[in-house]
Design a protein around this nucleic acid. Structure first.
Length: 424
DNA sequence: TCTGGGGTCCTAGGACCC
DNA sequence: TCTGGGGTCCTAGGACCC
């Protein structure tokens, strides 16, 4: 029998909570944070949810509504959220022997070994500490598997007052009562398509899925769903992933703030994306052996549509921005067509490999020693003097296509010049 | 005027080989 | 005319996540 105990700590309305840390007057006021380009809503506080603002709602559609209802609106400030996330994970790590950082605002914690009667108390202490040290509220769900810990977390979040943001399934004598009220589409790993298919089989709740016919599930559904069924039954099949992995692909892409038609403008954007992605690539000490460039028109607009992509294989791999820009331009050349109004462009580095594990091949062209030094200097300057202090001319000086970010809060915790001042 | 971005995993099916 | 079957590897695309 599985004796594992898993907790899922998940920050409440994380991006909004980050904004509130530095503007406490926003407590109890509805707050939303927008995606890049101020496109749509990606984080909402309970007050904003109560007003009926939906996740993913396009901002231009709800702008007036927000004004009328005194909603505080922010552009996303990822350096702020990233920094607070790092602090939160560091604190969490001090409380448990093992944890898996699952996303910017979530971590699975191993509670195995803690006495059953102490679980809730332990979670409450973690919650209090995080709130005190960072100002960020979290909810914690506890169960015998990841899927059930996720379920418990949803229960905690939906009943903040009665649970004080901690819900422990081990304390519940009749777990099935919870599962009966839990819609199948809210289960972690069940998306829209699968929920549709499940409802066709008359499976509507987590309870239905837990007690569904094994043979039918085996026949009809894929492995991830079969694993979810097992986890709902308390059978652990998703272990905590403790190792910090290197990324297997690195993407950089953005929608344009304005329509773009010309090749030169696309090139500037592509050079910019390659620079961003290559910096991440070098940070994890890897090289890319394939690069993909894609371009898209605006699918929401009633204009001629076109989207395409091209890939180039780099035999020996590279992490040198200048070399990668050249390859990316070749891809772009291949797919660019005049006469279209482009909305988005992006690059993907694929087939990544650790630099140290690269097979040296006499006949292949590796990054030259000169490039290596150039990249080292580039990264060093940008790390110490600020992002994009030094960049390739191909990226342009002041790109007109750059994204909108009209309501961004200061980098309170990552830039000396923007640290909040305390009144004398 | 204005609708995000960055990831992972899985599977089906094609290509290829013997 | 008739033209196997099984295995592996790779890739594109689907589905899902936050």
């Amino acid at each position: 029998m599985n004796s594992q105990k898993v907790a899922l700590a998940d920050c409440n309305s994380f991006f909004c909570s980050c904004e509130r840390v530095f503007q406490p007057q926003l407590m109890n006021r509805p707050v939303v944070v927008l995606s890049n380009n101020d496109g749509c809503v990606v984080s909402r506080t309970d007050e904003a949810k109560a007003l009926g603002i939906q996740m993913g709602a396009p901002y231009f559609q709800i702008k007036d509504f927000c004004k009328r209802n005194n909603v505080a609106v922010f552009s996303s400030n990822y350096s702020l959220y990233g920094d607070l996330s790092r602090r939160i994970m560091k604190i969490l790590a001090e409380w448990v022997p093992e944890m898996e950082v699952y996303s910017i605002d979530e971590a699975f914690l191993s509670f195995t070994g803690i006495k059953e009667e102490m679980l809730t108390d332990h979670a409450q202490k973690i919650r209090e500490t995080l709130l005190q040290y960072t100002g960020i509220p979290v909810s914690i769900g506890i169960g015998p598997t990841k899927v059930l810990a996720k379920v418990a977390n949803v229960v905690a979040k939906k009943n903040k007052l009665s649970t004080n943001c901690v819900y422990n399934l081990f304390e519940n004598k009749n777990e099935d009562n919870i599962l009966r009220k839990f819609p199948v589409e809210d289960i972690w790993g069940v998306g829209r398509k699968t929920a549709q298919k499940l409802s066709f089989h008359r499976i509507f709740t987590a309870y239905d899925l837990k007690y569904s016919n094994d043979k039918r599930i085996e026949r009809t559904f894929t492995r991830p769903i079969r694993n979810i069924v097992k986890e709902l039954r308390g059978q652990l099949c998703m272990e905590l992933d403790l190792s910090a992995h290197d990324k297997k692909q690195i993407i950089s892409s953005r929608s344009f703030g304005k329509p773009v038609f010309k090749m030169e403008d696309l090139q500037e954007a592509v050079a910019h994306h390659v620079s961003t992605a290559a910096e991440k690539l070098r940070k994890q000490k890897s090289i890319a052996r394939a690069i993909l460039v894609f371009i898209q028109t605006n699918a929401f607009k009633n204009t001629p549509q076109y989207h395409n992509s091209a890939t180039i294989t780099l035999l020996s791999g590279s992490s040198a921005t200048n070399k990668l820009i050249k390859s990316a331009f070749c891809c772009l050349q291949e797919i660019y067509k005049t006469g279209y109004e482009y909305k988005k462009v992006g690059v993907i580095f694929m087939d990544l490999q650790k630099k140290s594990e690269t097979q040296l091949d006499l006949f292949q062209m590796h990054d030259s020693a000169k490039d290596e030094v150039l990249m080292q200097v580039l990264d060093h300057v940008n790390a110490t003097e600020g992002k994009s202090t030094l960049k390739f001319a191909a990226c342009g000086i002041d790109p007109f296509w750059k994204m909108l970010s009209k309501m961004k809060s200061p980098n309170y915790s990552t830039r000396w010049g923007e640290i909040p001042k305390v009144n004398q």
